[in-house]
């Protein structure tokens, strides 16, 4: 097995708030191997965004790293000087955001924005334009030369998101972080984007960290999946293992809630009772215990660690 391109080890991040320390991420371990597509699933408040911000070092000023490291090809991103991290962003690690309308500049043409992202290259303007054209073609945009002179509002939502992906891949990064890139699109376009991403991943060989709360999209696209709950990784493994044989009670409930899995029409959809724990005053023991149906005494006192070699679960009961 190759060494991971990005290796998140024992990462804990907190935010200083008026009420005290809000422990947004606790002891998170996620290795991403070269050329793999890793999906992160979890509901709002599970720490997905904090995790991305930590990787690209864009955490809010009131955040602090309590422990851990984020190794990028062996170097700890958390130790890098601001200049070094700036050189890495966009070049080695690039991002596609949820809403392509707000991530593209509305007053600049597509072509201008696509040449701007190549500002580090010593190429002529014409060469940069030609590269932009080729990249638009690769993401499946019709008449790419014509599109260069158009503005983002001229394009449909699906096309805008493909332009955003083309821009992110311009620099041939080692890691592409995609934060809910298909949430704003309808089902037919969602499938188009997913297949395009798979294709591009094969061509460029970059690793992809794909964040979504759409379980179906993760199952379709990703090689591996990491399930997060309230700032912790509760289960991780190959997509097949996790989706076909979920072992953490939270993963099981999350999958049960997905209306796509309930084939018979029902007016009474399953829900996960209770609510997320308060991350300022964390309960002792397992973080999912208040909402878990099968908890035992041990879950109240002892926090389960993430254990296993390929299919990892953080639960006292799942291992038995």
């Amino acid at each position: 097995m190759d060494k991971p391109v990005l290796d998140i080890r024992d990462l804990s991040v907190s935010f200083l708030t008026e009420r005290g320390l809000l422990r947004a991420l606790r002891n998170v371990n996620i290795p991403i191997d070269p050329g793999r597509i890793v999906g992160i699933v979890g509901e709002s408040g599970c720490g997905k965004s904090t995790l991305i911000s930590a990787i690209i070092r864009l955490l809010a000023p009131n955040a602090q790293i309590d422990s851990g490291s984020i190794l990028w090809r062996g170097d700890d991103l958390l130790d890098l000087e601001p200049d070094a991290i700036r050189a890495l962003r966009g070049d080695e690690i690039s991002m596609v955001f949820q809403d392509p309308m707000t991530s593209l500049n509305p007053v600049l043409t597509i072509g201008r924005q696509m040449t701007d992202v190549q500002h580090r290259d010593n190429r002529s303007k014409a060469e940069k334009r030609a590269r932009a054209t080729r990249m638009l073609e690769r993401v499946g945009i019709p008449d790419p030369v014509e599109q260069l002179d158009r503005y983002p509002h001229h394009l449909s939502g699906g096309m805008r998101q493909r332009v955003a992906i083309a821009m992110a891949l311009m620099t041939e990064p080692g890691l592409l972080i995609a934060d809910e890139p298909t949430t704003a699109l309808d089902a037919t376009l969602e499938v188009q984007i997913i297949h395009r991403l798979q294709q591009l991943q094969r061509d460029f060989g970059c690793a992809i960290l794909f964040i979504s709360h759409h379980l179906g999209v993760i199952a379709e696209l990703c090689d591996e999946v990491v399930v997060m709950y309230a700032g912790e990784v509760v289960e991780s493994g190959s997509t097949r293992d996790v989706f076909l044989n979920p072992r953490h009670p939270y993963t099981q409930k999350l999958l049960d809630c997905d209306p796509a899995r309930i084939k018979k029409a029902t007016r009474n959809l399953p829900v996960i009772g209770g609510s997320l724990p308060d991350l300022v005053e964390l309960p002792d023991g397992c973080v999912f215990r208040p909402r878990c149906d099968i908890s035992i005494d041990r879950c109240r006192s002892e926090r389960p660690g993430l254990e296993g070699s390929n299919h990892c679960i953080a639960c006292h009961l799942a291992r038995q």
């Binding site: 019709p142 449909s156 699906g158 096309m159 309808d186 089902a187 037919t188 376009l189 969602e190 499938v191 188009q192 997913i194 297949h195 759409h214 379980l215 179906g216 999209v217 993760i218 199952a219 379709e220 997509t239 097949r240 989706f243 076909l244 999958l255 997905d258 796509a260 899995r261």
Partner: peptide, 27 residues
């Protein structure tokens, strides 16, 4: 039919009988 078939499933083994639509939504 295309919309219904495009709906991604959480079963990684689900046979994908996709009707993939090409082209853009016209303005």
């Amino acid at each position: 039919a295309a919309l219904l078939a495009a709906n991604p499933s959480t079963d990684p083994d689900a046979a994908s009988e996709r009707i993939e639509l090409t082209g853009e939504v016209p303005g």
